[in-house]
Computed example of a mutant assay.
Amino acid sequence: MSSAIPFDEIQRWTFDAALPLWAEAGYDLQSQRFVEKLDYSGEPIDAGFHRTRVTGRQTYVFSHAAILGWEQGMTLSAEGARQLDELYLGPEKGWPRTTDREGAVLDGTPDLYDLAFVLFGYAWRHKAARDQESRAGMHRAMDFIDTHLRAENGFWHELPPEGWRLQNPHMHLLEASLVSYEATGETRFLATARELVTLFRDKLFDGATLAEYFDADWNRAEGRDGQLVEPGHQLEWAWILVQYGKLTGEDTVALAEGLVRFAETHGVDSQTGRTMQVVLDDGAAVDAGARTWPNTERIKAHLALFEATGQDPRAAVAASSRLLLDQYLNTPIPGLWLERFTADGEPDADDVPASTLYHVFLAFTEVLRLQEKIEALGR
């Protein structure tokens, strides 16, 4: 496998293949909604539901694309914000988890994961358009989270809360809060981000591993559930923590390095180079299959450490970029992807979920943003 980062291929896949395909096939003119899935001929699949998180993620993608100069981006960014506005059920109900094709609520559960992407979508729309409507949307989302989902320490993952407490929605709320602060300069978003980083330091991370499941007091869940670790989430947290450090001046490098160290040692298959789905906190593999998104998070984590410390990212970024382009994104219709491979390396995907575009687009645009600095390493 080549050790060179394929900048030109990344540029072409992102701007010449993926964005045009998802702008057309990924938007249903009849329902005026972003679609949930495409098939491998690039045609929409009626999943029977629309997830609010996908609307937030696609709003992000097209808003970021607009900022980068992609011509259709601003129109589709506005479309995403309009959909988020229409999904809002009011200050007591917030945004539903799922709706049908006509917009009727299927599952009205307030879900912190979904709400984080509502905030994220509005924040990126505001970065692109600087409009008051998206700013108001950001505050509606944050108001609902603060009013209804705030717990004694952190937030509830859903209402009413069931099962173990989850770290993952908190990670995405941190990500969204940082973009919101960056977009507006408003300290309410920075205060939420600080609170979440404190939670991470005090409760979620033990210096090596980030658990997925916790009890009500943020002790790791009993039994095997408390031992489960997702390498992709370790890498994703590393990238987000470095972004927090860049915005605040706080030193988060040691946290990020600890997260990446465990993920690289125990979460990246030495034979295939794929970032595995789930391991135990002692490093034993639980699910050695690999979806698309953990591989994108490996790219982002190493780019973050490069910006923070100067650590050469080329080997890891080249390997995971090449893996994505040659295996996951190597489909007959450019702009699609194979969502998962089994531990044996067999494709394990029936359709192409729209939710994954957020991961690939963000990782690839980070590669392109840092291209000049990375290329300077070889001079």
Rank of each mutant, 00 (worst) to 15 (best):
2 S>G: 07
10 I>C: 00
12 R>S: 13
17 A>P: 02
17 A>N: 12
18 A>K: 07
18 A>V: 13
35 V>W: 10
37 K>T: 11
39 D>K: 14
42 G>E: 05
42 G>I: 08
42 G>S: 09
43 E>K: 15
47 A>G: 13
48 G>W: 02
50 H>F: 14
52 T>S: 02
61 V>S: 03
63 S>M: 08
69 G>N: 09
71 E>K: 11
71 E>S: 15
74 M>G: 14
76 L>G: 05
78 A>W: 03
84 L>N: 00
85 D>N: 14
94 G>V: 11
96 P>Q: 13
99 T>Y: 06
110 P>K: 06
111 D>F: 08
112 L>Y: 04
117 F>I: 07
118 V>A: 11
120 F>I: 05
120 F>R: 06
121 G>H: 00
121 G>P: 01
122 Y>T: 14
127 K>S: 14
138 M>W: 03
140 R>I: 05
145 I>R: 02
145 I>V: 15
147 T>D: 12
148 H>L: 06
149 L>I: 15
152 E>I: 02
158 E>L: 09
159 L>K: 05
162 E>V: 10
163 G>I: 02
164 W>F: 10
170 H>S: 07
174 L>N: 08
177 S>E: 12
180 S>C: 06
185 G>N: 07
187 T>W: 03
188 R>K: 10
189 F>N: 04
189 F>M: 08
198 T>G: 05
211 A>Q: 00
218 W>V: 02
220 R>G: 01
221 A>P: 09
222 E>M: 04
236 E>D: 00
241 L>A: 14
252 T>K: 13
252 T>G: 06
266 H>A: 06
270 S>G: 09
270 S>Y: 01
272 T>F: 12
279 V>L: 01
284 A>W: 05
292 T>M: 11
294 P>I: 00
298 R>K: 09
299 I>P: 01
301 A>N: 05
303 L>I: 07
309 T>S: 15
310 G>V: 04
310 G>D: 11
317 V>Q: 07
319 A>R: 12
320 S>Y: 00
323 L>Y: 04
326 D>T: 14
328 Y>F: 14
330 N>F: 03
331 T>F: 14
352 V>S: 07
356 T>D: 05
361 F>K: 04
369 R>T: 14
372 E>G: 07
